[in-house]
Design a binder for these strands. Structure first.
Lengths: 159, 159
DNA sequence: TATAAAGAGGACTAAAATGGTCCTATATGG
DNA sequence: CCATATAGGACCATTTTAGTCCTCTTTATA
C-alpha cells in the first residue's frame, strides 16, 4: 500500500492546524479537541514532532507548541521523517549495506533511485501546501508529460 | 518510512530474475534457489503475482511461471499493487470516503494528489528498468529543476 | 511561594499486520 | 499411474503500531 502510518497521518493534520494559526502557541488538549483525537495520542505525536525539530515547545502554564519554521519551509518529507524515520522504500535504501542478498538482488540500486525520486517529490510539498484546506472538487489527473517534480507542490494550489 | 513490505521487495527481485530470462518457465524452487530465499515464501509471492495478473502459470510437470506481458509493460506500480493492494499514502487515498474526520482533517485532498503523483512516478518505472542490474556506482542526485515524472524511468538507465 | 497548567520521557499493553510454514487439492507430462 | 508443479487456504509466531498512563520538570501567576 505504501501507506503512511496513522501517527504520521495525525501529524500532518495537526501540523496543518497549527500552520493555519501560526502566531500563537497551541496546547495538546486544544489541538486534540480541534482534531477530534484522544489527548494522549495527540500529545505523543506532538512530542515526536518536537523532537524532530519541527515544533518548538514551551512548558508550564501558557505553554504549548509553535512551528519552528515557516510553513513553506517545512516539507512533507520532514513530517514523515519525524514520525517514521528516514524515507526509503527498502531496507537498503539508506546504504547501511547489511543486506546479505545484495549480490543476488540486483535491484537495490534501482529502488534507491526510485526512493530518491519520491523523496525529491515529497521535498517539494510543503506544509503550506498541505494546510490549505481545499475541499477538492475533482482529483486533478496530472498529464504525464507536463508534470515535473517541483510542480508536485504547484499541483496542490487551488485554482 | 514509507517502506515496501518484504514480500513486495521479494516480488521485485523475483520478477527481475524472470525478466532476465523471459523465454522459459521458471519454477518456484528454481527461483528460490537463485534468489536464496525459502521455497514456501517464494511460492507464496509467485501466487500473488500470478493472481495479480503479472505472471502466467502452468501447472504440472514442466510447469512454472512466465511473464504475462513484456518487461517494459509491467510497472513498479503493478508489482506493488499485486502484493500490497492499491497504492495510496492514506486510508482515504482511494476515495472510499469512510473517514469520519474528513471535516476536521482538511488535508485529505492534498494527500490524494501527492499519492497520485507517486503513482504516476511509479508507473514510469518498468520492470525492464528494474531488471537491469546496474551495480550503481553513486546514487544519482537528481537536479530538482530538470526531473520530470516520466523521466524517473530514464533516471534508472545506466550511462 | 504554592499551585495549576503545561510538556518530557519512558514504560507498558493491546491490537493488528506481516512473514513464514504447511497441508490438501488439482493439473500436466511422460 | 506417478512425479512434478501450481492453487488455495489455514495457521501460527513475530513484529510493529497504536494507544494509554505514570512520574518528573518547567513555568506563570495568584
Amino acid at each position: 500500500m505504501l501507506k503512511l502510518s496513522k501517527l504520521t497521518d495525525y501529524a500532518a493534520v495537526i501540523m496543518a492546524q497549527i500552520a493555519r494559526d501560526p502566531d500563537q502557541a497551541h496546547t495538546a488538549s486544544e489541538l486534540a479537541a480541534r482534531v477530534k483525537l484522544p489527548h494522549p495520542t495527540v500529545g505523543k505525536t506532538l512530542k515526536m514532532l518536537s523532537k524532530g525539530g519541527l515544533l518548538e515547545s514551551r512548558r508550564g502554564s501558557h505553554g504549548g507548541y509553535v512551528l519552528s519554521r515557516s510553513p513553506s519551509d517545512i516539507t512533507a518529507s520532514d513530517i514523515i521523517a519525524a514520525i517514521e524515520g528516514p524515507i526509503g522504500m527498502t531496507e537498503c535504501s539508506h546504504a547501511d549495506g547489511d543486506c546479505e542478498l545484495l549480490d543476488t538482488c540486483g535491484v537495490a540500486g534501482n529502488w534507491q533511485r526510485v526512493s530518491q525520486a519520491i523523496r525529491t517529490l515529497l521535498d517539494g510539498v510543503t506544509l503550506a501546501h498541505l494546510a490549505q484546506s481545499s475541499p477538492l472538487k475533482l482529483p486533478v489527473q496530472l498529464p504525464i508529460q507536463s508534470v515535473t517534480l517541483p510542480s508536485a507542490g504547484e499541483a496542490l494550489r487551488e485554482h
